[in-house]
Amino acid sequence: MIIYGLTTCPICQKARKALDANRAGVQFRDVRSEPLNPEELAELIYEFGDKLVDRTSHDWRGLSDWLKHSEAEDQIAAQPKVMARPVIRNGDKLYLGWDEAVQATLLTD
């Protein structure tokens, strides 16, 4: 299992703590220090579409107007912090966020 997020993100920290307590071998990847490569980003965009961009964040609001109207890939490539998080890869399944449904699925597997 891999968690993609930011080490400073409180939601990512909660997800990481809960998953570490319930599973062995959970990896964490900070997308700011180790950005997604084009293939990884394309896979996430295919799975989640525009939901992958957090348009409520201060970082997104700080993007140039040109970037705000660009594709999600361009926005995340330019500013990884605008990626909605966490993204969790469990085998071949991907999950976005850390809501009750995701927790129920991943903490009971």
Score class of each variant (00 low, 15 high):
residue 79 Q to M: 13
residue 10 P to S: 15
residue 30 D to N: 13
residue 41 L to N: 03
residue 54 D to C: 06
residue 47 E to M: 08
residue 73 E to N: 12
residue 25 G to Y: 04
residue 62 G to T: 07
residue 71 E to G: 13
residue 21 A to Y: 11
residue 36 L to R: 01
residue 19 L to Y: 09
residue 89 R to I: 02
residue 107 L to H: 10
residue 47 E to T: 14
residue 77 A to M: 02
residue 94 L to V: 06
residue 69 H to I: 04
residue 109 D to Q: 13
residue 22 N to P: 02
residue 86 P to S: 07
residue 17 K to V: 14
residue 81 K to W: 01
residue 64 S to L: 08
residue 3 I to P: 09
residue 45 I to Y: 06
residue 21 A to H: 14
residue 105 T to D: 14
residue 46 Y to I: 09
residue 12 C to P: 12
residue 49 G to F: 05
residue 71 E to V: 09
residue 49 G to N: 08
residue 88 I to T: 05
residue 54 D to Q: 04
residue 42 A to F: 05
residue 55 R to P: 00
residue 107 L to P: 13
residue 94 L to R: 09
residue 39 E to I: 08
residue 10 P to V: 14
residue 62 G to I: 08
residue 20 D to P: 08
residue 93 K to I: 04
residue 38 P to L: 01
residue 102 V to W: 10
residue 36 L to Y: 00
residue 56 T to D: 08
residue 60 W to L: 01
residue 58 H to T: 11
residue 67 L to E: 07
residue 75 Q to T: 06
residue 102 V to P: 10
residue 73 E to T: 10
residue 34 E to I: 03
residue 69 H to S: 15
residue 70 S to N: 13
residue 55 R to Q: 10
residue 84 A to K: 06
residue 92 D to W: 04
residue 62 G to P: 03
residue 40 E to C: 03
residue 87 V to K: 00
residue 102 V to G: 13
residue 34 E to C: 01
residue 71 E to F: 04
residue 49 G to K: 10
residue 56 T to N: 11
residue 81 K to S: 04
residue 94 L to K: 06
residue 93 K to Q: 12
residue 68 K to W: 04
residue 103 Q to G: 12
residue 1 M to L: 08
residue 9 C to V: 07
residue 8 T to D: 15
residue 90 N to K: 13
residue 79 Q to E: 09
residue 14 K to N: 14
residue 4 Y to R: 06
residue 30 D to E: 04
residue 16 R to I: 07
residue 35 P to V: 00
residue 74 D to M: 11
residue 10 P to L: 11
residue 101 A to L: 09
residue 10 P to A: 15
residue 76 I to T: 00
residue 5 G to T: 06
residue 96 L to W: 07
residue 17 K to D: 15
residue 22 N to I: 09
residue 55 R to S: 03
residue 91 G to E: 12
residue 7 T to A: 13
residue 74 D to N: 11
residue 76 I to P: 00
residue 16 R to Y: 11
residue 5 G to D: 06
